[in-house]
Design a protein around this nucleic acid. Structure first.
Lengths: 113, 113
DNA sequence: CCGATATATACGTTGACGCGTATATATTGC
DNA sequence: GCAATATATACGCGTCAACGTATATATCGG
C-alpha cells in the first residue's frame, strides 16, 4: 500500500494491463495473452496495481476477475488539470486582449477541418 | 530524445521542479532552493526534462531560464481522457440509451457557461 | 586577463525494480 | 481424495536510474 500513483503508471507493462481492463473486467489469463511477459510477472503487476488502488478483484471459480477503479485516474486527471493552462489559452501571459482578437478572427474565417 | 513521457513524471523531484515552473520561467538556482537535492542533481533533471521536451531553456547572462512546454501535458491529458468514462458516467455499462436521453435533455436546457 | 558566480558533466556507488524459473496455494470435475 | 487448471509467491539475478563529490565550462564585473 501507499504506493505513488505516478510510479504505477510509469511502467509500460502496467499501462498495457490497464488498457486491457479499460473495456471491462478480465481474468489473469486473458491479460497474459495480451502482454508479452510471463504469467508470474502479470500476477505481480496486478498485485501492485491492487495495492495502489488501481484495480478491484472478484473471484470467479478458479479465476480472478480484475477491473479498474476510478480513483487513481481522477487523481491523475486533477494533477494534469493544473497544467491545462499551458495549452488551453495563455491568458496569464498574453492578456485577455489577444484572446478577444482570436475569437474575433474565428468568427470571420469559416471552420476548416 | 526518445524518453518515455510517463517515466519523466514518475520521479518526485522532477514533479517538484515542474511544479516550480508552473507559474513561469525560473533560473536553476531558484529551483535548487525549492528542491532538497544538490545542484548537480537539479541540472541533471533539467537535462532529462529538456531531452524529453518538457522544458525550454533561454540564456540570461550567466543564468539559464527554464520554462514549461505544453506538449507532454497534452499527451497526459489525452491518455487520461480515455479513462474518464470510469467516473464521468458509466455508459459502457448502463447502455447508450441513457446517453441518448442525456443529450436530449441537453438540447432542452439552456447552455450555462 | 582574472576571480567570482552560475550551470553543466564525468565518475563511481547504491538501492530499487522487473524479470523468469520454480514452487506454493486455491478451485474445479470426477 | 486426486489430477488438472488458474493464480499467487519465494528466490536470485541483471539492469538502471538517481545521488553526491569533484571538476569542467560559460559568463559576468573590474
Amino acid at each position: 500500500m501507499q504506493v505513488d500513483t505516478f510510479e504505477i503508471i510509469a511502467d509500460p507493462v502496467r499501462r498495457r494491463i490497464i488498457e486491457t481492463l479499460r473495456t471491462g473486467e478480465r481474468a489473469v489469463g486473458d491479460i497474459v495473452e495480451r502482454v508479452d511477459i510471463h504469467q508470474s510477472g502479470v500476477s505481480r503487476h496486478l498485485r501492485i496495481l491492487h495495492d495502489a488502488g488501481f484495480v478491484d478483484v472478484r473471484p470467479d471459480g478458479q479465476r480472478r476477475l480484475y477491473s479498474l477503479r476510478a480513483e487513481p485516474f481522477r487523481e491523475f486527471d486533477a494533477w494534469v488539470s493544473r497544467y491545462r493552462i499551458l495549452w488551453e489559452n495563455r491568458l496569464d501571459k498574453l492578456g485577455a486582449e489577444l484572446e478577444k482578437r482570436r475569437k474575433n478572427r474565428e468568427r470571420k474565417t469559416p471552420g476548416k477541418p
